[in-house]
């Protein structure tokens, strides 16, 4: 049995008893989704916490059958994405993308395995930061699709469900998003005049 299905059964039986397990299992991915779509750690923290609180409130209004039938991962992702979107819209002052260095210091960015040499570690850390920064430069809809599909690891179907978009749309957004990331991350190796279509053909 999928751990989330087991969790849904427990939630249906006794919401308050099982909810801490949901928090334990999903707080990290909700924070990741919020952080990778917003780029501001404090905002991501609030969005992730708000998403869990909303989820608890919503589950409180669902009957047991509906809770058992829930697909927890995309369902929670929807809540986080919507809250992150609201926050982005509210932020009228367009803050510049944040550097991730403080996160590494705070121990929130996963550490590069220490088996790697110092130079390699620095390179990989730098690569992560550049990737995260490039992700934040993608158009929001494309960024959401990439974050859910490839950072959070949802399937195309789950991503489509979570974002309320047709699967074809999600596929296209992920495809174009990856192409743009490749284009921006490797400017030295690609001819800037080569179109995205050619690149990914």
């Amino acid at each position: 049995m999928d751990p989330d299905d087991a969790l849904c059964y427990r939630l249906a039986k006794d919401l308050d008893e099982a909810f801490p397990a949901l928090v334990e299992a999903h707080a990290g991915r909700l924070y990741t989704i919020a952080h990778r779509t917003l780029g501001v750690p404090s905002d991501a923290e609030e969005v992730a916490q708000d998403a869990l609180v909303r989820a608890h409130a919503a589950l409180g209004t669902y009957d047991a059958d509906r809770i058992r039938a829930l697909r927890l991962k995309p369902w929670l992702a929807t809540i986080a994405v919507n809250l992150a979107r609201n926050r982005r819209r509210r932020a009228t002052d367009r803050r510049p993308p944040t550097s991730l260095e403080p996160l590494v210091v705070a121990g929130l960015e996963p550490r590069i395995p220490s088996a790697a040499g110092p130079l390699e570690m620095a390179e990989r850390r730098d690569a992560r930061r550049r990737l995260a920064d490039e992700l934040l430069r993608l158009p929001p809809a494309m960024r959401e699709a990439i974050v859910l599909r490839h950072v959070d690891g949802l399937s195309v179907a789950e991503t489509a469900l979570a974002l309320g978009r047709p699967e074809g749309t999600v596929k296209a957004q992920v495809h174009r998003g990856l192409a743009q990331l490749r284009l921006h991350l490797a400017p030295d190796f690609l001819d800037p005049t080569t179109s995205v279509k050619e690149l990914t053909a």
């Binding site: 909810f19 924070y31 990741t32 992730a48 869990l52 705070a106 490839h150 950072v151 959070d152 690891g153």
Partner: peptide, 21 residues
Amino acid sequence: ALAGLSLTAPATVAAGALVRT
């Protein structure tokens, strides 16, 4: 590399959510 962008939530996320609920 994208899959490697997963983060650990600060402890305040879970703790705050449990208090608020």
